[in-house]
């Protein structure tokens, strides 16, 4: 086995790992606080990336919302456009919680599955209708010309990979600080553990959950904007990514942020390494091992690696 090639593949995989970890973290934040898997997380993130695309593309013909960009005037630089798009994504996430999720707080699980699946379908179709189903070129988030890489032992690690990890780790640090040292973070932890007791202690459960959704939407939006350059922007861009992220979150434990990070790394590595050494899988089918892993984890150890074991009372 070629060691340099293996190392190179691992380095390449690490970029995807960062993306999966971020999205898995978003899923974990929502699952932890509301016990709900947000199937629309990927589409919400893609939508934000499209907003950045519109802000950047200006008044290109056939691009819905081009007027918005020309109204702003001068074309925006990439970081500003992406920053705005992420902020819009965060707002949309909070609004979704307030308008569509909170009224269903006493509804059965099925109702919430329906709502998130409905959002997925509607957004997916809307993006196809507005911006076309074909892939769009998206500017890179990090410098990514051919020379932008660091050489380590003969293998190359690209700036975009380093950058994605820096962003992810920064976000994780901020999140940890937020949860540990702020009032809102304390409230969020309390609501995650026991919403009823939290409410009895005067914590406003609804708004706290809304912050959670906003955080998750922001994480997803950042992940989508970081990866839109390499996977090309299209309405179904995050669909496969969502399966990987779910696999990562399941593997790590659906209620464990640490698990999401570890799961993301493992899934990212396996997504690159398994197709490389198992010819039948190939690139397109690389989502199959992730799905199988998810099923196996759910059957054998539903709590995942770091999740809380559930005890059911009969």
């Amino acid at each position: 086995m070629d060691v340099v090639l293996l190392l190179q593949r691992i380095f390449d995989a690490l970029f995807n790992s960062a993306i999966y970890s971020s999205l898995a973290l978003a899923l974990v934040i929502i699952f932890r606080s509301t016990g709900l898997l947000n199937f629309a997380q990927g589409e919400m993130a893609t939508f934000s990336a499209y907003i950045a695309f519109v802000l950047l593309a200006g008044a290109a013909p056939g691009v819905k919302g081009g007027g918005l960009a020309s109204w702003i005037g001068a074309p925006l630089v990439t970081p500003v456009a992406i920053g705005l798009a992420v902020i819009i994504g965060i707002g949309a996430g909070a609004a979704t919680e307030r308008v569509l999720i909170r009224p269903l707080r006493n509804a059965p699980e099925l109702a919430l599955v329906n709502v998130t699946i409905g959002i997925l379908l509607a957004l997916n179709s809307l993006m196809g209708q507005w911006w076309g189903t074909g892939p769009r070129v998206f500017p890179p988030f990090f410098p990514s010309s051919p020379g932008d890489h660091i050489d380590i032992a003969g293998a190359r690690i690209r700036y975009s990979t380093v950058g994605a990890w820096l962003v992810l780790l920064t976000l994780l640090l901020l999140l940890a600080l937020l949860l540990r040292y702020t009032r809102a973070g304390l409230a969020f932890r309390a609501v995650s553990i026991d919403p009823v007791s939290a409410a009895l202690n005067g914590i406003r459960v609804g708004p706290t959950l809304m912050y959670g959704w906003a955080l998750a939407a922001g994480l997803g939006a950042i992940a989508a904007n970081m990866s839109a350059n390499s996977v090309l922007l299209e309405p179904t861009m995050m669909v496969r990514v969502l399966v990987y992220a779910f696999a990562a979150a399941t593997l790590g434990g659906l209620d464990s942020p640490k698990g999401a990070l570890v799961g993301g790394v493992v899934v990212g590595l396996s997504q690159t390494l398994i197709p490389a050494y198992v010819p039948f899988i190939g690139f397109e089918l690389s989502v199959l091992p992730a799905l199988v892993a998810m099923v196996v984890v759910l059957i054998v150890r539903p709590a995942g690696l770091f999740g809380t074991q559930r005890i059911e009372r009969v």
């Binding site: 199937f39 089918l285 099923v295 759910l298």
Partner: peptide, 28 residues
């Protein structure tokens, strides 16, 4: 068979994954 152990929202997740993985699998 997995539905023996996987219930509710997790099963929804697995079946959604199945729907997504189907196209590339069928091409094989």
């Amino acid at each position: 068979l997995p539905a023996l152990r996987i219930k509710g929202i997790h099963l929804a997740l697995v079946t959604l994954g199945l729907a997504i993985v189907f196209q590339p699998l069928a091409k094989r």
